[in-house]
């Protein structure tokens, strides 16, 4: 069933369009920066944007920071919201279930397919970010400081390219986990309705609500448990030494979201009357 799900995912034009658009936005920003040379001053604008002009290798981080707040959640909401509700609305859900595909297996396959989608999304953005960044901004003058291609970390120390690659891999994993948490919530919403649009909008509503509560002092008690609260912890992975506590806490909360949302999806779907 997982193979069937992945095959369905990869043959959907919408999915490739999502990936293409995710990669297009940072590429556009890179081209604009390269043409005008007007990088935002340090401390303003998107994370890392001020630094990329001097070193293209940092552009993947800047690209992720660009798509993270809105673009990435939208694509995850679309794909995850479609997971069960989409099958229900075209009617293939009933044919899968009488084939038979066990309901738990179906949900697990859907979760794996969402996982593959978010992982590839983050990976594609990172890779295009790297290619575009290096092509437009080069390896940067820091090369003399820390050997060939060295990059200054946010804490001032110089990272070797290998170190940078390892950290970027960690960032990809961390952000994919954050998005998977959102995707699992989308999967749950998708079992509640037969409308993929409603499920997707539900996910976006959660993101917006969480982002609205986050800066509020009165919401301080629940702040660490908001889904968006730890989205920026990945930046700590570029510090030297890495600030693990925030990353670890973020990963735990996001993993909790995956478990709880998947459990809720299973609880709802296991005994649901499929009348679509």
């Amino acid at each position: 069933m997982t193979g069937v799900e992945l095959s369905l995912l990869l043959r959907r034009r919408r999915v490739w369009l999502c990936w293409a658009l995710l990669c297009a936005l940072p590429a556009l920003v890179a081209v604009l920066l390269a043409v005008t040379g007007l990088a935002p001053p340090p401390g303003r604008g998107g994370a890392f944007l001020s630094a990329v002009v001097s070193n293209g290798q940092l552009f993947p981080a800047a690209a992720l920071a660009l798509v993270l707040p809105v673009f990435l959640p939208i694509t995850v909401a679309i794909v995850a919201g479609d997971a069960v509700a989409g099958e229900a609305s075209v009617g293939t859900l009933r044919y899968l279930l009488v084939r038979p595909v066990g309901r738990l297996r179906l949900l697990l396959a859907k979760l794996v397919s969402i996982m593959v989608f978010v992982l590839l999304a983050v990976l594609f953005v990172t890779v295009t970010g790297y290619v575009v960044g290096v092509a437009l901004f080069g390896f940067g003058p820091d090369a003399e400081l820390g050997g060939a291609g060295g990059v200054t970390s946010l804490s001032g120390a110089v990272l070797s390219p290998v170190d940078l690659l390892g950290r970027t891999a960690l960032v990809v994993g961390y952000l994919a986990l954050c998005m998977l948490a959102l995707g699992a919530v989308g999967l749950f919403f998708s079992t509640l309705t037969d409308s993929p649009l409603a499920a997707a909008l539900g996910v976006l509503a959660l993101v917006v609500a969480s982002a609205a509560l986050q800066p509020l002092d009165a919401a301080g008690v629940i702040e660490p448990y908001l889904p968006t609260a730890h989205w920026l912890a990945w930046i700590d992975l570029y510090r030297d030494p890495i600030l693990w506590p925030s990353v670890r806490e973020g990963a735990a909360v996001q993993a909790g979201y995956v478990l709880v949302a998947f459990g809720a999806a299973w609880a709802n779907f296991a005994t649901k009357d499929v009348t679509s």
Partner: peptide, 22 residues
């Protein structure tokens, strides 16, 4: 049940293969 259903973006043959594989 209640009329046929298929993944509209795939061919009939691909649909049957996927249903078979599921």
């Amino acid at each position: 049940v209640e009329g046929p259903a298929a993944w509209g973006n795939l061919s009939g043959r691909a649909n049957l293969r996927l249903i078979d594989a599921a």
